Computed example of a mutant assay.
Amino acid sequence: MRLLVIRLSALGDVAMTVPVLTTLARQYPEIDITVLSRPSMQPLFAEMPCNVHFRGVDVSRYKGIGGLFRLFRELTKKEHYDVVADLHNVLRSKILRMFFMLASAKVAHIDKGRKEKKALVRPRHKIMKQLPSSFTRYEDVFKELGYPIKTTFHSIFGEDKGDIALFQQITGTPDNKHWIGIAPFAAHKGKTLPQEITKALIQELSAHTDRRIFLFGGGKTEKELLEEWAAMGSNILSLAGKLKLNEELALMSHLKVMICMDSGNMHLASLTGTPVISIWGATHPFAGFMGWNQSMDNAIQIDLPCRPCSIFGNKTCLRKDYACLNGITSEKIIQHIERILRTATNPSGICSFAGDSSKKETNSSIY
């Protein structure tokens, strides 16, 4: 039995397939699974069970119906796929799965819950409730195809951590200091921590000599800013442009805690079994995008009647002041960090983590 899984972008959404596909591959070792995604996503699947294969595709080379038919022909030239799981469900993947249906493959696609998400973010009369997570929505696709699973997953590295040799030339070898990661950026302003808050956070953390601070980000503007912040202390290091994705994943597995926005880095760190403190502005965990195995207790957000106003954080602030982000203080973030560091020192006090936050009844109004 050959199964094709389609999830072309974006980074966070592709990362969220990893726990589900790992479980699927282990529970059904007789299935030969091929994951179709962008080439840059390959490191996410490098540690998968041996019945999972990755195929990278540059979708810009396959434009229009004709281009997608050419991709379909290339995919089926050597392999016949009996089952197709469309975990993307956009126009491009809809056309592609139509070709597979005409070729007699069994096809199922994700229900993104657009109607209930719209009710969550509308300006008035919001329906504030936890929606199914992407993990659950992915599971439902495979259940429809006849492969029910209950996702169990710890880390892409299993019970171990990533290879130190992949990053030690840049960072040095992990020692008895608390290694802390900070990824303050996101794709949209509504999900990005204001610079003055980030700077204050880095300054306060770096004042402790028993800590090393690693700054994650990319792009010219982010790189310049991270380098500027890294210059504030000898125990701060900007990683922008210095590590590849597989090297970043290995490093993340050795962090005591990662501070992220609702972004791809939140999901990457979650895949390595590292506790994540996630900061939410225009978006909300209720939409179903909390990182794998992360606790709602570590989600920092402010209760405002306008929140959430966006699923992806790409809408202009209705108040014009981004109070959902500007009202979050560095002191509040540090309180969460200190609690996690105490837990790491005293494991007996560890709180339980839910593999799927959508299955917990949690009041997430104020943190």
Rank of each mutant, 00 (worst) to 15 (best):
T22L: 05
K94L: 01
G241K: 08
N346Q: 09
S278V: 00
K191N: 06
N51W: 13
G66E: 01
R73M: 13
R212E: 12
I259D: 03
L268I: 03
K94G: 00
E331C: 06
I302Y: 15
D111C: 08
S238M: 06
V57A: 09
V18Q: 04
Q42R: 15
K126M: 09
T22P: 05
N363V: 09
G146C: 10
D262Q: 08
K129N: 06
R122Y: 12
I366A: 15
Y28L: 00
S93D: 04
L325C: 07
N176L: 01
E222F: 11
A240H: 14
Y62L: 00
P39G: 12
M41P: 10
S348E: 15
A108G: 03
K63V: 04
S352G: 13
R61Q: 11
G146E: 13
S253N: 04
K191H: 04
S93I: 03
I311A: 09
H88K: 01
K177N: 07
R319E: 15
S133Q: 04
M261L: 04
S357D: 08
S310L: 01
D13G: 11
K189N: 09
S295Y: 12
A287L: 02
R70N: 10
T198F: 15
M48K: 07
S358D: 10
Q195C: 07
E30Q: 15
L102N: 05
K191L: 02
Q203R: 11
L36R: 09
V52Y: 11
L243Y: 15
E224I: 08
S364W: 11
E196Q: 12
R92K: 06
